[in-house]
């Protein structure tokens, strides 16, 4: 799995779409209202799913059965007992700003930081996108 992070509007999804030739149907945009489709090739706005977990009192998912792999732009998954996991997870680094006054936002900010760290440990590759330019940090 490749984890992609960075600030809002920096071109994280553009980077993933281009690198893996993602189709719109392969991208699942997470929301605060429902669990995402974990069988999607790409999960974006993972921080919104973290907010859902915070409200539900559940732990955000940070490891997945099996892994996708991509050779010459052609994607497939290696399988594994628990099905397959997403190829790319994209998450905004919302934890870099000022500590918010709102208690829920404060808790969300911290849970996002911990979730990103756990995802990064389980990721084969971690990329940070800055002003449209990707930098491999793992």
């Amino acid at each position: 799995m490749e984890l992609v992070t960075g600030g809002a509007f920096q071109g994280k999804l553009d980077y993933a779409v281009k690198k893996y030739a993602l189709l719109e149907s392969e991208i699942c945009e997470c929301t605060e209202d429902a669990d995402p489709d974990f069988s999607a090739v790409c999960l974006t706005h993972y921080e919104r799913y973290v907010m859902r977990c915070l409200r539900e009192g559940t732990a955000p998912k940070t490891s997945f059965g099996g892994t996708y792999c991509c050779v010459d732009g052609v994607c497939g998954y290696t399988g594994g007992e628990g099905g397959h996991g997403p190829l790319v997870i994209i998450m905004d680094d919302i934890f870099c700003g000022v500590v918010p006054a709102d208690p829920e936002l404060r808790a969300w900010r911290e849970l996002c930081g911990r979730t990103l760290t756990a995802l990064a440990q389980n990721a084969e590759e971690v990329t940070r996108v800055f002003c449209g330019i990707p930098k491999k940090i793992k």
């Binding site: 600030g7 509007f9 934890f95 700003g97 000022v98 918010p100 900010r109 996002c112």
Partner: peptide, 9 residues
């Protein structure tokens, strides 16, 4: 200025 990484809505 890098103003894209806060938790405030």
């Amino acid at each position: 200025d890098f103003i894209y990484s806060g938790a405030e809505k």
